[in-house]
Nucleic acid binder design. Structure first.
Length: 801
DNA sequence: ATACATACC
DNA sequence: TACTGGTATGTAT
């Protein structure tokens, strides 16, 4: 029985605290007794009180919903039903049963790893985690109601003999990468959901597999047992216990793949060509390689595969046939709670409407469409039809990064501040690893009553360093303290998150495009209007959306010129001037204002300086070599016949001082399009092997390959002709600019960065130099040129000044 | 854009 | 004694 006795809640019992027996291994245990212990252990605690509060909020939500329901007439329902019916037709039309999606899930992963590495634990109830919180428990412990997300001290009450092993993430990560190697053999584009879980699209593997000889479907058992020596195994790292000892990890009687053949002492098994055989083979290989078992679900879409993988857990698999009938029947009796995305609260809301299984879901769709948001009821509808994604989506770029910490009560401002700084430093380190910068900083606070608050601030420029983040976070913290005073903030958790990343597409071409200003022949025009390969197209649309500087705030208030932000002022002024010229040019030959002719006109004009009629890049090639000395002003787009940056800068300054800050907003998109093209061109340039080093050297009128490179920033001749080294040097110079900028920054109390991290800069530059060659093959970024140079946008001012 | 809630592992 | 940490997304304002 589910706790789905509908309106009369388990009276007095806070349902959100009750045992969650949704997961496998929880059948047939004494729920009442377990719940009683859980309640007794929790009652009166701050945590419990907070849970009660939240429970009440949910109940209010339910009350509100029921009131709404009262208002609904037959008329409403009829109309809604018609809408639902239309929707169903649409969805049915698109139902795709042709794919074979597999969801794999390691059994009690962390616990299984620990048991494998410490045989002592094998027949004991154990869990991984701490007295405060458990990550997972073995099946032994689950019999007592001990499960993931339960605090250890409560688990101990349920099962006094429980052994709690601290987590060892490095080990789990290592095992995880072992199993992922196997996943990749069946679907190189598999989607990992966590260390122990993944979705795979088996469709293509199965096609190939049909024509595979036995040899490719033959897999051996782990190298035969060492005669007797598995006793004193310490096994700190991956080791090789006994074959005969296989699979005792979960159940001594668990039927592993049966031994099929024996060949010169080496046992092996030949797997068939069916899906089930393929999946069984994959699980077999996982087990042989890691001594850990996995369960799998096979279905025509991800939603169903996920449910299926739970069906025969542990160490089992379940295939749902790819027919509409099978799917509908399967879904019919499926409790809504089993569906990924429907959690405690949704379940409770649905229960209140008499819905506990997916068949109910279908029956009440009209009602649901009136009571829930569009996204919610669409989801419900799809679930009720057994629909889900038949394709595994490309892994998306990360959207946020955060770090948080729980601690014993902390009230002193001093302490909180230094913790905050620490978090910012940790976060900055993590950001550095991925070369990310974000514009939104969020502070998360949880007080001793478990009340959570978040406070966010979005900057107009992306940040990444600890100092920059801390400057924001500490203000948010201070504001909260002030709001609470004279009461102190009694915290139990603090966290810092950063989001609104500038995408990697936007960061990388930036430097290139700056260089492009200096050497327009090379960078000003790209393959342009020609057909663009898809991956480039993606980049293009990506960058035109939120180009940090050049296109910036396409959707925001353009009036807010934010002159305080030094990173923007230059380009904003430049753009203003350009747009002014553009407008003048446009009106001089009638009137224009729409379409792409303006930017084209400007480009053409710019290009015409080199007497090159061809817009498609040939232009660049000829200019760069013919009239070596001379720079193009990004403001007036005229050529300045000098190689002296000081002279050039003076010219730009003059142009800027002549420019007014007004700009007609409908021209902005044209400007943006222009920059986007520049970005694309930079990519092209990269692929041609032209690096900033080459362009930089031409800035100094030094074209000879044999002579040394001269840094355009510090103007010092470099020792090496190695472009990578040179790039690194230029970047360092550029980033010196960032540092100075930050130090002289007056508007916000951002602390000066302590020291430039040359390692990070080097890394960024390396990416820049390599971007044109092999892109990394990771599925996370199949089409984006990896992570980029940080700080590049801040360097612009310096570069010209 | 911000805050909060829900969900997943 | 003791109820996580990281990410995404939906909902409301």
């Amino acid at each position: 029985m589910e706790n789905g006795s509908i309106p009369p809640k388990t009276e007095g019992l806070v349902s959100r605290m009750a045992l969650n027996d949704n997961k496998a291994g929880m059948e047939g245990l004494d729920r009442d007794k377990i719940n009683k212990i859980i309640m007794e252990s929790s009652k009166g605690s701050k945590f419990y009180e907070n849970e009660v509060k939240r429970e009440q909020q949910v109940n209010q939500r339910i009350d509100k919903m029921m009131l709404q329901k009262e208002q609904i007439t037959e008329q409403h329902l009829k109309k809604a039903q018609a809408q639902v019916a239309r929707m169903v037709v649409e969805l049915e039309k698109r139902r795709d049963l042709t794919r074979v999606i597999v969801h794999v899930d390691m059994d009690a992963f962390y616990a299984a790893v620990e048991m494998r590495d410490c045989p002592e634990l094998k027949d004991k109830p154990m869990a991984v985690g701490s007295m405060s919180m458990l990550s997972t428990s073995n099946y032994h412990a689950r019999k007592y109601g001990v499960r993931a997300a339960m605090p250890g001290f409560i688990a101990k009450k349920l099962c006094p003999n429980l052994v709690i092993v601290p987590t060892n993430f490095d080990k789990y990560r290592a095992v995880s990468s072992e199993i992922r190697e196997i996943f990749a053999d069946y679907d190189p584009n598999f989607m990992p959901m966590s260390l122990d879980e993944a979705y795979l699209d088996f469709t293509e593997h199965l096609e190939k597999r049909q024509s595979w000889p036995d040899s490719l479907r033959t897999h051996h058992y782990r190298a035969s047992s060492n005669p007797k020596g598995d006793e004193n195994n310490e096994l700190p790292q991956e080791t090789t216990p006994d074959v005969t000892d296989l699979s005792p990890v979960l159940f001594d009687d668990s039927p592993s793949s049966f031994l099929c053949c024996e060949d010169a002492g080496s046992a092996f098994e030949i797997f068939g060509t069916s899906v089930e055989e393929a999946v069984r083979e994959m699980r077999f290989r996982i087990e042989q390689k890691t001594l850990l078992t996995a369960s799998a679900g096979i279905a025509p879409n991800m939603m169903l595969a996920k449910v299926c993988s739970d069906k025969n857990k542990p160490n089992g698999q379940y295939r749902l046939p790819s027919t509409r009938e099978a799917v509908m029947e399967f879904v019919c009796n499926l409790p809504v709670r089993k569906v990924s995305g429907i959690g405690k609260v949704s379940e409770k809301l649905l229960n209140a409407l008499g819905i506990s299984s997916c068949s109910h879901l279908g029956q009440k769709m009209a009602l649901l469409s009136l009571l829930f948001s569009e996204t919610a009821w669409h989801h419900f509808l799809q679930v009720s039809l057994g629909l889900g994604s038949a394709f595994i989506p490309r892994h998306e770029e990360r959207k946020s990064m955060s770090t948080e910490r729980t601690f014993k009560e902390m009230s002193a401002a001093e302490e909180q501040l230094s913790l905050c700084r620490e978090l910012c430093e940790d976060l900055a380190n993590d950001l550095k690893k991925e070369g990310l910068k974000g514009k939104t900083v969020t502070l998360k606070l949880k007080n001793v009553n478990f009340e959570v608050k978040t406070r966010a601030l979005t900057l107009s420029y992306p940040v990444a360093t600890a100092d920059e983040i801390f400057a924001v976070a500490k203000d948010l913290l201070k504001t909260e303290r002030d709001n609470e005073s004279p009461q102190p903030l009694r915290l139990r958790l603090m966290g810092v998150r950063i989001s609104a990343f500038v995408s990697s597409d936007e960061k990388q071409p930036l430097q290139k495009s700056i260089v492009g200003f200096l050497n327009p022949g090379k960078a000003e025009l790209g393959p342009s209007h020609k057909e663009i390969p898809r991956y480039q197209n993606d980049q293009l649309s990506g960058s035109s959306k939120t180009w940090p500087l050049l296109c910036q705030r396409s959707g925001e208030s353009e009036e807010k010129t934010t002159l305080e932000e030094p990173q923007q002022s230059f380009f904003q002024k430049a753009r203003a001037k350009r747009l002014q010229l553009q407008a003048a040019a446009a009106s001089s030959r009638q009137e224009d204002s729409s379409g792409i002719s303006s930017p084209l006109f400007l480009d053409a004009r710019n290009c015409a300086a080199s007497d090159e009629p061809d817009n498609d890049g040939a232009c660049g090639a000829s200019t760069s070599t013919s009239d070596g000395i001379g720079l193009s002003c990004p403001v007036c787009f005229r050529r300045v016949e000098t190689a002296d940056l000081a002279v050039f800068n003076r010219h730009i300054d003059q142009c800027l001082s002549e420019s007014s800050a007004q700009k007609p907003s409908q021209h902005l998109e044209e400007g943006d399009g222009r920059e986007a093209k520049r970005a694309e061109l930079s990519a092209e340039e990269r692929s041609l092997g032209s690096t900033s080093a080459e362009t930089a050297s031409s800035v100094n009128g030094n074209h000879s390959k044999s002579s040394s490179l001269v840094c355009p920033i510090c103007l010092l001749t470099q020792d090496s002709d190695d472009l990578i080294l040179f790039n690194r040097h230029v970047d360092l110079c550029l980033n010196q600019g960032v540092l100075h900028k930050l130090q002289s920054e007056t508007r916000s109390p951002i602390n000066p960065p302590s020291a430039p991290n040359s390692k990070a800069l080097g890394k960024g530059q390396l990416h820049l130099a390599q971007a044109g060659k092999g892109k990394t093959k990771r599925r996370d970024s199949p089409s984006s040129p990896s992570k980029k140079v940080k700080g590049s946008c801040i360097t612009i001012d310096h570069f010209f000044r």
